[in-house]
Simulated scan of single mutants.
Amino acid sequence: MTITQQDELDALKEIGRIVANTMHAMARAMEPGMTTAELDQIGRLLLERDGAIPAPEAVYDFPGATCISVNEEIAHGIPGARVLASGDLVNIDVSASKNGYFADTGATFRLGAVKPSLETLCRDGKRAMQIGIAQVASDKPLAGIGAAIGTFAEKRGYTLIRNLASHGVGRSLHEYPEEIATWPTRGDRRRITKGLVLTVEPFLSKGGLWAEDGEDDWTLYSTPRAPVVQYEHTVVATDKGAMIVTLPG
């Protein structure tokens, strides 16, 4: 969507704050021995408390309130009987709606101590998202997001998952522009309009190039198999840059 009025922005900020608070509360609640279903239930109750509707479930009939992807799972992990353990990388992706407005956020969290290389990957994954967000402003090229992230990744020897894109959001979970590359592309002449609402969510990897379906038709894995992290914010394009609406508060 494109924000044109203050009440639209206020509503978007409200749901943005809710999904951010939910994601960070889930991360704080993680502990070894907990199942992903138990972690998802915490997220569900928090969203319900704040009057929000879990978007994956409502829009796509996803079997969970949130997406929880552990280690080799890189996205759209179904909450279930999987038991979390110390050393796991856990991606928590929370999207929801309230009063007809949607926001989407995600991050990869470490449960206990992880290998130094994974600590670095997480740090750089967050940095890749920030570099992409810095390219968001009125009348800038949409392809500039992927170009900047790609330059960062290449310099540090990383790869990017190239079939999981950022997207427009606001009045629905996925809307125009539906495919926003977070990797370098050619031929995309689209420009960012003032007030455009979009996600920025690169998937940074140590060798992975593509996301492929698993047996459950939801969970995605990298090809080739390699560690992957994802960080995501919902932002609004302004003349001065990106306004992040998925901040806790």
Rank of each mutant, 00 (worst) to 15 (best):
K194S: 11
T159L: 02
H167K: 08
I180C: 14
L173D: 05
G170V: 03
S172N: 11
P184D: 12
E179P: 01
R162L: 06
R191T: 11
I161S: 11
T182W: 02
L196W: 04
S166T: 03
L196N: 10
G187M: 12
E175H: 00
G168C: 06
P184R: 14
R171P: 02
T159F: 06
L164Y: 02
E175N: 00
A165Q: 14
T193N: 15
W183D: 08
D188N: 15
V169M: 03
W183G: 13
L196Y: 08
W183E: 04
G187C: 14
G170C: 04
E179C: 10
A181R: 06
G195L: 07
H167L: 05
R162W: 01
N163E: 13
Y176M: 07
R191N: 10
N163C: 09
L164P: 01
P177L: 05
T193V: 05
L173P: 00
P184Q: 08
L196R: 12
I180P: 13
A165L: 11
H167P: 04
G195W: 05
G187R: 13
G168M: 08
R189G: 12
T159I: 05
S172E: 11
K194T: 00
L196Q: 15
G168I: 04
S166A: 10
R191W: 02
L196G: 04
G187V: 15
T193G: 13
D188M: 09
T185K: 07
I192T: 09
T193Q: 13
S166C: 04
E175G: 00
